[in-house]
């Protein structure tokens, strides 16, 4: 099973990288961009019987830092 873990900064956590990229987009002439937040995408190939609980645990123990980040698990159809 293919799983994508989307890790993003929690709302309210300032994102200096996002702000810099926002500024750069602005400089390239792209108008109408209201906000940019940078996250991380982790793609994993896992055994089909991997439980949701195990995936949650992977995210909370390692893949995301729960102090500053949220995560979303997406199971990708083969």
């Amino acid at each position: 099973m293919k799983v994508r873990i989307h890790v993003s900064l929690k709302p309210g956590v300032l994102d200096p990288q996002g702000r810099a990229v926002h500024h750069a987009l602005d400089g390239l002439g792209f108008k109408g961009v209201d906000d940019v937040r940078i996250g991380r995408l982790v793609e994993m190939e896992v055994a089909d019987d991997t439980s949701d609980e195990a995936l949650d645990e992977m995210c909370q123990k390692l893949l995301a830092n729960m102090v500053i980040e949220n995560y979303r698990i997406e199971k990708v159809a083969a």
């Binding site: 300032l14 200096p16 810099a20």
Partner: peptide, 17 residues
Amino acid sequence: LTEARLLPGALMRNAAQ
């Protein structure tokens, strides 16, 4: 130490990058 949860909080990218 923060990642090991011996201390609270997290250290993010410097504000000025």
